[in-house]
Design a protein around this nucleic acid. Sequence first.
DNA 1: TATTGTTATACTCTATAACTATA
DNA 2: TATAGTTATAGAGTATAACAATA
Lengths: 137, 137
Amino acid sequence: MKDILADLPGYALRRASSAMLAEFAAKLAPLDLRPTEASTLVLIAENAGITSSALCQFLGMQRANMVPLVARLEQLGWVERVALDGRSIGLNVTNKGQKKCTEVRQIMERFEQRLIARIPEEHREHFVPALRALWHS
Amino acid sequence: MKDILADLPGYALRRASSAMLAEFAAKLAPLDLRPTEASTLVLIAENAGITSSALCQFLGMQRANMVPLVARLEQLGWVERVALDGRSIGLNVTNKGQKKCTEVRQIMERFEQRLIARIPEEHREHFVPALRALWHS
DNA sequence: TATTGTTATACTCTATAACTATA
DNA sequence: TATAGTTATAGAGTATAACAATA
């Protein structure tokens, strides 16, 4: 089998990313949270009162896609919305949500540590800088 | 804005991957091919007579998802199917498909070169090895 | 009995277009 | 006039379950 894709950085990037995302999703599944929901919850917790728009700008997604996402977190009682003015709505994590958030953070940290551990030591320090060079440009 | 995700390798991996994939998809769009279709076409070209199952095993996807993919390539007249026995079907790229494949390869190579160029020189050699460590385990 | 190809279905993430209410 | 939130819709990738036909 000719493996002409395996040496392509773009292809390796895609495969590694989807493998890691699937693993992360599996770890989150017991909490009934998708990766995007988990990231959103954690970001709201760290930035009390943030608006949906600011969140989207930061996460690099469209505002429209945040609507059902926040709606679900609100319905679960983990996030609450407070009108800032007649147009903007600040997001906060509830007490109940804080507990969930702690669990999420634990899973995230464990996951990230295991991910790093899998990268051979001599490549580790280069990993995030290389990724950020692609992401921020 | 507290940026607690930005330093997480898993998050950086996901952002970089989705950014690059979107860019790759945009480059392929004029050929009316999605990234997965392009990879499939190129792999068939390099492995004449390969079966759908083998292709899926290599690409890390489910057989079921290959069906509409190959069907489209066949309908476009770029791939043809030849029964190997009563059960397996070998895939080949047609002459018409070879021309498209050359275009795809050009776009892929240009894309990969630009991707590599964006990574600061001192991190470059570490990039694919780190990704492969995540992907193959 | 295991494998190949297939159908049907659903989930996750993401995008665009268009609308409304407000700043 | 630009922005925040929203609705509706679609597309791309992927997964599972179940099935028929064949090895």
